[in-house]
Structures are given as C-alpha cells and as structure tokens.
C-alpha cells in the first residue's frame, strides 16, 4: 500500500491505496466522486477526463499513486458556489449533450483546449476533442457549444 495526498475539487484527501488503483476508481469508489464516469479500457473514449494540475488527463490511465501531491478538478468541482462554468452553460444552451455520459470529459477537455487556444476555429475544436468520443450528438452541437463557451470564457476575466 502507498500513502497519497490528493486534492480533489478543493478538498484534500490522505489515503492508503494499492499501487494498481486507477485514479478514476480512487475518485469513484474511494472518494464517492462519481461524477467522473468510465467508458473504456484503452484511453480512447475520454469519458473519464479530469484536470490534473490544470491539464486534461484520462483518469483511467493514471494510477492514483501517480496523482500523489496533485490537484484534481472533476466535473463536480467546476461550478463555483452553484454558478455554472461558462462551458457547462454553453453545453446546456447549445444542446451539446443527450445521454450525458461523455459530457464531464467533453466539458473538461474543452476547457483544457481553450486554455491553449482561446479562440479556436471549428477545425481546431474538432481536432482538440479527438480524444473524447460521443455516441449521441454527432458532435455538431458540441462544436457550437465550445465556440460559445470559449467566447464567454474570454469575456469573463
């Protein structure tokens, strides 16, 4: 067992974990942070995407021990004091989700994309989200939502 300290959505946790415990299972099964779902075994689908020290990672392909000392932001920690993040709002406004299973990963990957590229073109959004699969929307509305979210993130200092 290894002892790790991880901050998740602003709360610091100290836990004993098996080295093989995946970060996503640490979040879901150990901490009860079930907002982050699991969609595959091979890091292809991106449903489990979280921000680790500010950057998107697939939490199914990170060991909890590798996250020792890091700051994790999940979809559950994104809205501050009940106020939705502009990207969450944009996904709602543009009907960018149906079943919603890919949505946490899609929103966090989009926020990561905007950090590097505050005003992405349609093609840049599409390639920026190549690691996040959605089976419901056909992506058109997701692309629109990311454009809108980007604009609102730019407008909100």
């Amino acid at each position: 067992m290894s002892r790790i300290t991880v901050t998740v959505d602003g709360t610091k946790y100290e836990e004993e974990v098996e080295p093989r415990l995946l970060l996503v299972h640490f979040l879901r099964d150990r901490l009860g942070r079930t907002g982050t779902p699991i969609g595959c075994d091979t890091s292809n689908c991106g449903a489990c995407t979280v921000l680790m020290d500010g950057r998107s990672v697939k939490s199914c392909s990170v060991l909890a021990v590798q996250a020792d000392g890091s700051d994790i932001l999940t979809i559950e920690g994104l809205a501050e004091h009940g106020t939705l993040h502009p990207m969450q709002r944009a996904f709602h406004e543009e009907h960018a989700l149906q079943c919603g299973y890919c949505t946490p990963g899609m929103i966090l990957a989009s926020i990561d994309l905007i950090q590097d590229n505050p005003d992405p073109s349609e093609d840049e959004i599409r390639s920026g989200l190549e690691g996040n699969l959605c089976r419901c929307t056909g992506y058109s509305n997701i692309v629109r939502a990311v454009r809108k979210g980007a604009q609102e993130m730019g407008a909100t200092p």
């Binding site: 890091s43 995407t49 697939k58 392909s61 990561d112 690691g131």
Partner: peptide, 9 residues
Amino acid sequence: VADPAVRHR
C-alpha cells in the same frame, strides 16, 4: 501523437 489528454501524460 494520440490526443491532447494523452499528450499531457
């Protein structure tokens, strides 16, 4: 290589 999240790790 792969996708942005994978490139972060």
